[in-house]
Amino acid sequence: MSVEPVPAAAPSAGELIRNGILTENPVFRLALSLCPAVAVTTNVTNGIALGLAVLAVQVLSSVTVALTRTRIHPRVRIPVYTLIIAVWVSAIDMTLAAFAPAVYAQVGLYVKLIVAFAIIISRLEMFASRYPLVPSFWDGLGMGLGFLFALMVIGALRELLGNGSILGFQLTPAKPLLFFALPAGGFFSIALLMALFNRIERMMGGTGAPSGGGSHGV
């Protein structure tokens, strides 16, 4: 009992990945899941850690939903999607706590919050519930990679300017602009990077405006 008739052709793997990283990059274009993008990116390592966690949750949830979408009663599909995401988030949370405690101490709270990210559940609703396993996997991977990429870029900018280091390796003797390591700097970093992405997209022929913007229509 699937939700809607399966669309004619699923996009190819390459298209899906490029979509996730560039055209519909969750952070810079769709402006979803912004909370961790600012909170966790004081340095690249934390950004990568959370990015990988989100990637894992996205891929695993997409795959799970794609496999079980015939069994999910359509009227309770949102709660079931939420449940699936929550299970994977808890599993990844526990795994991180067990095998990467140093990183977990920094990003623990935000890993648990992954369950509230709109990006994941909206992806499940729009894609994984309608397409079979393989395209759903690529879509999840694309979105996850886009998110990881965004976190890495923001993290790099903030760590380089705020601390003078990259991945822990000190490049400058003093902190160039401590401001970027602070919460306010996080907001500014994203503002700059979003504007940059808009510019790039306009140069590549698009409209230059984020298609989401977390506007929710209001």
């Binding site: 402006a31 602070l182 919460p183 306010a184 700097g185 996080g186 907001f187 500014f188 994203i190 503002a191 700059l192 979003m194 504007a195 940059l196 808009n198 510019r199 306009r202 230059g208 405006a209 984020p210 913007g213 977390g214």
Partner: peptide
């Protein structure tokens, strides 16, 4: 133009922060 919409809102949020 590139800052229209969300990017400027983020910068504003940064000032508030």
């Amino acid at each position: 133009k590139s800052f229209e919409g969300l990017p400027m809102a983020f910068a504003l949020a940064g000032l508030f922060a």
